[in-house]
């Protein structure tokens, strides 16, 4: 039963991830990404962490991908005419990148499973309380730095988006 659910969720995640890349319509690609992320949230649930699953759906599917859709619809991106771009070096570049990624993944699994199987993680370590305590004690400084970084990005973005008033530098005639 558990294996069947895992295969279903993992298969859905992989299948829709492939669709994200190969679908010609950008909105359909985004929706495939939504399916991938929801399936991954299901995998988190199976691993005994409803907290991570809820965060995954709330942040990625509920907010970030809606913004993707917003931008795609606002720019009115047309569907692509061909799946593959004809740029000559692209195939080779993709092959090399895939090889490097596959190698790195294999190395990671090798390191994790070659010597001894990793013991299953304690679900309690990924509960809301445990994550919050770690985030606000051990990782407080990185957490604050990331917050500051995001603030800087927001300020910069709103400065760029601001239309300069008459007489100000950067005014578009």
């Amino acid at each position: 039963m558990e294996l069947a659910i895992f295969v279903l969720l993992a298969g859905t995640a992989l299948g829709s991830a492939i669709l994200v890349v190969f679908h010609r319509n950008p909105v359909s690609s985004t929706m495939s990404l939504v399916v991938t992320l929801v399936a991954t949230a299901g995998l988190f649930l199976m691993l005994g962490s409803p907290f991570l699953a809820a965060l995954q759906i709330l942040l990625y599917t509920g907010a970030i991908l809606v913004l993707f859709l917003f931008v795609i619809m606002l720019l009115n991106v047309r569907r692509e005419r061909t799946i593959h771009s004809r740029a000559p070096g692209l195939t080779w570049g993709a092959a090399i990148c895939s090889a490097i990624f596959a190698g790195a993944t294999m190395r990671l699994f090798w390191a994790a499973y070659a010597t001894a199987p990793t013991p299953p993680l304690d679900a309690e370590a990924f509960s809301l309380r445990a994550v919050a305590r770690e985030l606000f004690s051990t990782y407080l400084l990185p957490f604050e730095i990331i917050g500051l970084l995001l603030l800087v990005a927001v300020v910069a973005a709103s400065w760029i988006a601001k239309r300069p008033g008459p007489g100000e530098p950067g005014e578009v005639p």
């Binding site: 909105v27 929706m31 939504v34 409803p50 907290f51 699953a53 809820a54 965060l55 759906i57 709330l58 599917t61 509920g62 907010a63 809606v66 859709l69 917003f70 619809m73 509960s127 809301l128």
Partner: peptide, 26 residues
């Protein structure tokens, strides 16, 4: 009866916007 109940609520509620957006697009 979960200790993540409210998070689950917000997560599921945040998905309902897709219905409106996709209807508008398609």
């Amino acid at each position: 009866d979960s200790d993540n109940g409210m998070l689950m609520f917000l997560a599921l509620a945040s998905l309902s916007v897709y219905g409106l957006v996709l209807a508008g697009y398609s």
